[in-house]
Design a protein around this nucleic acid. Structure first.
Lengths: 225, 225
DNA sequence: TAGATTGTTAATCGATTAACAATC
DNA sequence: TAGATTGTTAATCGATTAACAATC
């Protein structure tokens, strides 16, 4: 009944923000919950409910002013200032994130990456790749709060522990393992690419089987998982 | 009440599978719903519920035989045969996926990647990077069912359309845009790395504010998002 | 004003968990 | 057997949606 702000709500907020940016670029001035819902793939009731949770209000009959709504969402999502992030692991995923083009524009700055492999180090790059041993000091000296873990499974928990001890409060974890963290105030968001792909594979197979007995069994109807 | 198989159930199935592999490697022979739940981070009731959904049964009092349970999950998740997958886009994310080390071991074979940039092409590699124009023919000739979209936002919908027209039934989408697909039988799983990172940032900030009024307001208690 | 949209409450829907009879 | 664990039903929890009074 209380329905507080949860992960899914914040994910939707990010999507509203993106949609509003597009609308704004297209020169629109105001938007209705209907339009936003359609753009993001949720009901208009969901949009209004989400907004009310954050005390965002529009004008009855007049919808929402795009620019001011966008500013509000930016503020809620911490887009006001540049957010420094570090990456542990300069392998495939790590390097992809270092060069992820949209981060920079979106106020997310990869301050440095870290690896144990000396061959992967690049101290003089714009985004330096340093030794993993230097990570704790770097976190402390630069007051980094957010870390991305892109090291092999075997090293992930150790890296997580070191991050948290050094002051990291939030982790995006690409290692395919559940990280344990005693500190209740640390946020961990796991992203498991293999499992996401397996999910697609499962439903493709499931729909394939379904196909045969087509009109009878129309239980499974997915498009967006 | 009917509670059919949904995305989250299948995600858990993948996690059970992973945990069972570990247990098996450690030499364990049987496992209880308790153990599995603990390993994956869910209740034992959830584990049994999930299994019953797939007609998996154990032995009252005796738990589950790890090896046979593992085989069953492998079968359900389509691990019996090699699953061929293509990647559209050989940029940062695309290349990371091409070289993702665990895919091969797990029966997922990246058959080829495609890009519009001639500079990115490598016809002679083990996993070739071909021209995007060759994609439709490749899909048809090789009977590919699963595609990964790792092209820039602007090109994503077009690539999606081409994939579906050529016979792709499932898509893992890394482009930060909601893909529209008329065909109800096509599965699309979006993975938006920026939004996942923003989510972490939000909750770190939210917990930080919470901190001040600490013992009074203990509403927000996240660890795993 | 009349009509349309918001903000919010109540209803619904769906997923998780508790509980317990069955049983090994 | 006694004790422990499964499989399943019912209860709970939580999130989404429908509905509608307020109002611009």
């Amino acid at each position: 009944m209380v329905m507080d702000v949860n992960r899914r709500t914040v994910l939707r907020l990010s999507r509203y923000r993106k949609a509003l940016q597009r609308f704004s670029e297209l020169g629109f001035v105001k938007v209705f919950s209907d339009n936003l819902g359609e753009a993001v793939g949720v009901t208009s009731a969901q949009v209004r409910k989400d907004f009310s949770l954050f005390g965002i209000s529009g004008n009855k009959r007049g919808g929402y002013q795009i620019d001011s709504l966008l500013e509000t969402l930016q503020r809620i999502l911490g887009k006001g200032r540049v957010q420094k992030v570090i990456v542990a692991g300069a392998g495939n995923i790590g390097r992809a994130l270092i060069h992820y083009p949209t981060f920079e524009k979106e106020g997310i700055q990869i301050a440095a990456a870290f690896d144990i492999d000396p061959a992967k180090m690049h101290r003089k790059e714009r985004i330096p790749v340093l030794s993993l041993d230097e990570m704790p000091r770097f976190i402390e000296e630069n007051g980094i709060e957010i870390g991305i873990i892109a090291v092999p499974e075997i090293a992930a928990q150790e890296v997580c522990d070191r991050m948290v001890r050094s002051g990291i409060r939030g982790i995006l974890n690409f290692a395919p393992i559940r990280l344990r963290c005693g500190d209740e105030n640390v946020v961990i968001n796991p992203v498991n690419l293999q499992i996401e792909l397996e999910n697609v594979i499962y439903f493709v197979h499931a729909l394939g089987k379904n196909q045969d007995t087509a009109p009878v069994n129309d239980k499974i109807k997915v498009n967006h998982l």
